[in-house]
């Protein structure tokens, strides 16, 4: 089991944002976390990536408890992330963005002598190749199209050979066609390299097409978990989240 979460809780000023969520993700598996706005998805996510410390509960990555560690430590233990709104270094080229992750992985950030320009680009290029961005390696990230930025983020997230990928609304802000392409790419990489993927998502087409399992939250608590077909048929999930299906084409 790559990731095992047991009964985590978090409250803010008396408001219980997450009240007892447990989940697990295996290598090569895609688990989707869905639910209405304010259900606690983001809070859950931020506890997993280290931005928040759970009040209670365990978060176990490959046998080690990571609850409460800062994000950079969690990254070094093999967790890659992509953000809801892409976060890249806008003043650097696509290649340099990936190289930064590699330099950080090699503990070389305090090198003040060797120009980055003379680094061997082979590994970074290989990563960009994997996400189909090699052709744009020299362009500054500040001018890329949104869908391409998402791919760069994926390449950065893969730079330290992660065991787990956390993707917060990976297709938010993308056109439907790009969504499908990005998730197919992600699913392929995850299955081939044995990476566990946990993602939140509002696009039900993406969720039902790519998730192996789905966990539905409402008001900080899990209300359903299972394979897509099971979850889709669940009357409670329909009531609090999915609705009639008129707006997502999945009934």
């Amino acid at each position: 089991m790559t990731l095992l979460v047991e009964d985590i809780h978090k409250s803010f000023g008396g408001v219980q944002a997450v009240a007892g969520v447990s989940l697990s993700v295996q290598a090569g598996e895609l688990l989707a976390l869905i639910g209405p706005n304010g259900a606690g998805k983001s809070t859950c996510f931020n506890m997993l990536n280290g931005q928040l410390r759970p009040d209670r509960g365990r978060i176990v990555l490959k046998g080690q408890d990571i609850a409460g560690l800062p994000p950079r430590r969690i990254w070094r233990m093999g967790v890659g992330r992509t953000f809801q709104i892409t976060a890249t270094f806008a003043s650097m080229s696509v290649l340099e963005n990936v190289q930064m992750a590699l330099l950080s992985h090699a503990h070389r950030l305090f090198d003040i002598w060797n120009p980055v320009r003379r680094e061997d680009p082979a590994r970074a290029m290989a990563l960009l190749e994997r996400v189909g961005m090699a052709a744009q390696a020299g362009r500054p990230c500040g001018v890329l199209a949104y869908g391409d930025l998402k791919r760069v983020e994926l390449a950065i997230a893969l730079a330290n050979d992660p065991a787990l990928l956390l993707m917060d609304e990976p297709t938010a802000g993308m056109a439907p066609s790009e969504r499908v392409a990005l998730m197919e790419l992600t699913a392929g990489i995850a299955r081939n390299s044995g990476i566990a993927v946990l993602f939140t998502e509002h696009d039900m087409e993406v969720v039902f097409a790519h998730a192996d399992r789905i966990l539905v939250l409402d008001r900080g608590r899990p209300i359903a978990e299972g394979e897509p077909a099971q979850v889709r048929a669940d009357p409670r999930v329909r009531e609090v989240y999915l609705g009639t299906g008129a707006t997502h084409g999945i009934a």
């Binding site: 706005n37 938010a172 509002h202 039900m204 989240y241 609705g243």
Partner: peptide, 14 residues
């Protein structure tokens, strides 16, 4: 107006 909203809320928006 539907970006990032749960399907049930999107229906109310419609």
């Amino acid at each position: 107006p539907s970006e990032g909203l749960a399907p049930v809320i999107i229906e109310r928006m419609a």
